[in-house]
Design a protein around this nucleic acid. Structure first.
Lengths: 215, 215
DNA sequence: ACGTAAGTTGAGGCATGCGTCAAGATACCG
DNA sequence: CGGTATCTTGACGCATGCCTCAACTTACGT
């Protein structure tokens, strides 16, 4: 399917587009206008479509550099914490910090776009999260009824919070996450009014997030 | 400025538009296309602009019927609770239920639109909230460092949650709110990593929400 | 150096949604 | 009933953003 060899100029354009996409995505999020990426790369929008064909392909091309490393690093730091609760808390805060630091990461973490690479990155994330959660629960520090799917509540919430408060109160989200973490400690637990989401439900929600729609 | 008396047909159209707006807003939220409202009212979009002139004016015309009563009712029920914590929890859950039950209310509560009437409604809300919060704090049930501005964290979060999970997991948000409430009990309190938002900051965030922008 | 396959261009078609205005319709007054 | 002020209409222009394709340009092999 894919041509093995590109003409030199095409190859150059592909690289310029990749770089431009990385920059624009980081500044404006994964929904940034493709035209702007083409403009920044110094090529026409037609070329962008020639080289990539879709936003998704473009995202796939930059996803690893954009997200994989930072997410891995956050998990690594969390696991390195001696205290399992501190590890969990550090993970949650760390991921939220990523969300706050870069619109594109925020989109990745709250799953505003799906793509092959992104999905792979998330699957890797998932396993690390399970470990971090279980470790904290084994010691009776994280409430026992907390599931990995519940993490999405945290990240979806922070996604919006960060998006809207980054201007007026850049550190405001930390307070919200603080409240939330206090509710996740084992000793804070009270019976919950609803069952956890199933992985399928999470999947479905993410799928709809991709659709876009208003907000 | 405003004409005191309208011609009969104009008056009729105004009412039809008001009704249509109420219906469409309830179904789709306050950002629903104005054309659709005109269509449902059986008039042309030009007439909508003749009668109202802007989305904001249209919102103002339906805001009281749309939002004021239900918000008041939730606060009333909360205050009627004997236990101040139950009152507070019931208020939070109640408001979130409104968010979940109607896209327009969700927009009002999370302040996706500003308008004169809406602002007035919110100011009324504010006082009731202060009372509910203080009552629960006086008894040492709600954590002492919780401010009225922090309520917005809850409602902003739920707004997004509800918007995205209403299809796949209609009751899912209750679980998220459950976690949050557990973090708000006095005995769950741990030092927070950030200061509360000032009312000005809340104002500014709300102003930006109105702007729209992506998501 | 030249021919051709490969690549690029950018105007233009699509769709959404806001807001306007000249032309036509209609209520109301005398 | 007629005249006029009031009101309605709906096509149009605007803007955003996606995506395409016929015409043009360029790299590369010989």
């Amino acid at each position: 399917m894919a041509k093995a060899t590109l003409r030199a100029d095409a190859r150059r354009n592909l690289d310029k587009l990749r770089d431009a996409a990385l920059g624009v995505f980081r500044e404006k999020g994964l929904h940034a206008p493709l035209d702007e990426i083409a403009r920044r790369a110094g090529v026409s929008s037609g070329t962008l479509y020639n080289r990539f064909g879709s936003r998704e392909a473009l995202i796939d091309a930059v996803a690893p550099e954009l997200a994989a490393d930072s997410l891995r690093a956050v998990a690594r730091r969390a696991i390195a914490e001696r205290d399992p609760w501190e590890g969990f808390a550090s993970y949650v805060m760390g991921v939220c910090e990523l969300q706050a630091s870069c619109p594109a990461l925020n989109d990745v973490i709250s799953r505003r776009y799906a793509s092959e690479q992104l999905t792979a990155i998330c699957r890797a994330t998932e396993e690390r999260e399970r470990y971090i959660i279980e470790r904290a629960q084994r010691e009776g520090l994280l409430r026992a009824d907390f599931t990995r799917e519940d993490l999405f509540f945290v990240f979806w919430s922070t996604a919006t919070l960060v998006r809207h408060t980054s201007g007026a109160a850049p550190e405001g989200w930390r307070r919200a996450v603080g409240f939330l973490l206090d509710g996740l400690r084992a000793e804070a637990a009270h019976p919950l009014p609803a069952e956890p989401l199933t992985p399928d439900q999470v999947e479905e929600v993410m799928f709809r997030l991709g659709e876009g729609g208003p907000l």
